[in-house]
Design a binder for these strands. Structure first.
Lengths: 211, 211
DNA sequence: GTCTATACAACGATAGAC
DNA sequence: GTCTATCGTTGTATAGAC
């Protein structure tokens, strides 16, 4: 069904340029090469479709470099998309605490992380998402398959996919309202206020019975 | 008084390649001129700062033409921004019914209107909003000053501006999730399901006590 | 000599072919 | 069910910069 993947690229690289072991000459081109290759691969095949080995081959290095420099596939995606936090750190923050405070904690973490970049990173992200279809696909796939899935496991309610997408809609809208459109007074409100106003609604999405 | 339509002979129509029979749709030039002038004026001065008289003057027509063709400043704005519904129609739909169903009615109206365009209009709107600062300013100002204000009057709760911007965040996020990012299953869910899941959260934003 | 960026081999998990 | 290929990840040895 699927054509044989061009695994020769690694061998070709090994044949053309000698892949020496050990520390390479200064100038960290490995990280940049991986990032460039990752953007192309993620954009072409989505998050799940992108292969770490293919990215590493395209960058001319070993797949283990992804782990060494970015902590894994998720970290590489986060770096390639300029996300202000690694998904594993995000999830560990969210899941650390009482379950009845999960909604508020999600809002507080979301705003703390994006406020930290002055909102510029969010604007950039949503600009590319609304302009490039591939960016929208990448974000959709990554958020649903990586972030939502693990979150839904913890909540343990029915219809986890619907609940997750409902939460996602409120969070994306919060970012749009605060950083892009700048609805007042929401755009200037402090995080605590928004956490206790929006948090319960996320909690409801996550736990309340659905039709 | 409308300007006298220029009488044309059959020969002149044939020479110009005119295929339409009967009376030509008068006023299209005027409408287009007004729309172009309106986009420039709204973009430069925002919704409130834009003067109907300035727009009409720039279009070379009388200010009364705005009322004649677009029903007023709001209708002109809606047409200039390619909004799929006129704000007055939108608001009359929202305010027609029991107040405890307002949240659900907002979601149902929002989705019905934008689904009617296949979502393309929403994508186009948010693309321009996320790329052009003026577009963001126009939308922000219009929604807060025109839509939210009147909605808040009906609800009659405290801190109407905060409540309105909270509702706006959820609605913008709903549109992003459904039409741009396409979170599943939200993107494919029927309107009734989303109305009864999201509606109560809007209702809470509008009526629940705030800190 | 020390440090570390690197390559290679191998492991557990998973998905599809048969 | 079994087998196989491939995935992401991990452990480890090493070469070269410092």
């Amino acid at each position: 069904m699927s054509p044989p993947p061009p695994e020769q690229s690694a061998a070709e690289l090994a044949a053309a340029g000698e892949r020496r072991r050990g520390r390479r000459p200064a100038g960290q081109d490995t990280k940049d090469a991986l990032l460039a290759a990752a953007r192309a691969e993620f954009s072409a095949h989505g998050y799940q479709g992108a292969r770490v080995r293919s990215i590493a081959s395209a960058a001319g290095v070993d797949a283990a470099m992804v782990n060494h420099w970015f902590g894994g596939k998720e970290g590489l995606f986060a770096a390639a998309m300029d996300l202000p936090i690694k998904p594993e750190v995000l999830l560990s923050r969210l899941l650390d605490g009482a379950r009845e405070d999960l909604g508020e904690r999600i809002v507080r973490t979301f705003l703390t992380v994006w406020d930290g970049t002055g909102g510029g990173a969010f604007v950039a992200l949503l600009r590319s998402v609304s302009t490039h279809e591939e960016a929208a696909r990448m974000l959709r796939e990554f958020v649903t398959e990586v972030v939502f899935r693990r979150l839904a496991d913890v909540v343990g309610a029915d219809r986890p996919a619907l609940r997750a997408s409902l939460c996602g809609s409120q969070l994306v809208g919060l970012g749009m309202a605060r950083y892009v459109i700048k609805f007042e007074p929401l755009a200037s409100a402090d995080i605590a206020t928004l956490a206790i106003t929006i948090g319960p609604n996320l909690q409801r999405y996550l736990t309340e019975p659905l039709p």
